[in-house]
Amino acid sequence: MSEAFPGPHAGPVTGHVPVLRLGEVLLVTLQGDLHDSTAQQLQQDLAETISRSGATGVIIDISGVEIVDSFLGRVLAEIAGQTELLAARTVLVGMRPAVAITLVELGLTLPGVHTALSTEVALDLLTRHAPSSHFGGLRQESP
């Protein structure tokens, strides 16, 4: 039967997405249907916040995101690439199965973007290990 998301009308998100700071790590929680300009704004905000704060990690929680199209996919990939340049690393957290299947079908596998199942796992790994070490829960496909 038909399934619907619990909150399909969580209105479109516009403007700034709040960036939370947890020690060395920045936490961003994306939710609902993201406006293109909001995603681009976030990309800009993150770059500035990282260089200002010297954060070593960024966690982007997308468990509340119902769709990731190639536009948002590209923004996320660019955020990851850009944080890498600023000597920090980005972990994408909580992608929904339906979103993951769709992205793969779309041809966007986001190589080079780290992923984790939950914020806890991501936080644990980002804070416990040096950015260069290899550990189980963080996935990065070799290019």
Binding site: V93, M95, L103, V104, E105, A122, G137, R139, E141
Partner: peptide
């Protein structure tokens, strides 16, 4: 595809 989708989710 399954492997790629699982990786996107963090597994």
């Amino acid at each position: 595809k399954t492997v790629a989708a699982a990786r996107l989710m963090g597994a």
